[in-house]
Write a protein that binds this DNA or RNA. Sequence first.
DNA 1: TTTCATGCTATACTAAAGTATATCGCTATA
DNA 2: TATAGCGATATACTTTAGTATAGCATGAAA
Lengths: 130, 130
Amino acid sequence: MKTTAIDPKIDLKSIKDCPNSFVMAVNDTMNVLTGKWKLPIMATLIFGKKRFKEIEREIPRITPRMLSKELRELELNGIVKRTVHDTIPVTIEYEFTPSGRSIKNVLDAMVEWGQEHRNTVMNRLSKVNL
Amino acid sequence: MKTTAIDPKIDLKSIKDCPNSFVMAVNDTMNVLTGKWKLPIMATLIFGKKRFKEIEREIPRITPRMLSKELRELELNGIVKRTVHDTIPVTIEYEFTPSGRSIKNVLDAMVEWGQEHRNTVMNRLSKVNL
DNA sequence: TTTCATGCTATACTAAAGTATATCGCTATA
DNA sequence: TATAGCGATATACTTTAGTATAGCATGAAA
């Protein structure tokens, strides 16, 4: 797990009235979600297990390097589980962990805010243009 | 507003069963939250208006360049309102817009998931180390 | 035997994000 | 008059993220 306690990049620690555990939690969540391909990859896993090439085919323009890198990171962060099946040749499947699946709550909150915010901005714009 | 429709960087459009409006909403939200200093800046504004130098002092290691840049971006995105007061010399205050304040719901969801996830990972680790 | 699919990794590169440092016009204070 | 605070901007640089391209070991199909 890549926790923020160790990571000096984002430092909210000294901001008063903001409990440290909250800051760490937000940063952990951000670490899981940021990067160009994390969300697309997670989107492909919503409806169940997928193999490397399946994911690759479903995400236009992703390179195998990035897919490999991001899957490894998601695995390290406990979001995705990688299973090697003892077939010949081996097949490998990726799927959400329970933790990974539950991040949907965060995405839902993001969808809701994003849509409300978009409406707010649109209304503001349309009033300006009367 | 920086909408994702125009931004070709993140492309979930072709992923089946994932409504476009959802994808756009998530990406809009991500655009508001990503970057090293957005969260620290927003944290300083939680309890009300602040001036440039106040924010700068509360965030260790931020440069005026980054603060200026991020505040401008937050303003463009309708998260933060910038008010110029007609004093001598002018004083400038930054505060949340209602939209900006309501992003707290997203942060709350992130805190909740982040803490749960951390516990899950900790439990996993402690079991491994028995 | 050539070709293709799978599940990657290696190397080298470009682009984006962030840092360091200096400066500016204005005003108040010492 | 010198110094400091305010609210920044400019220029140059480094670091991180992402891309392009090639290749490899395995096995199956044509």
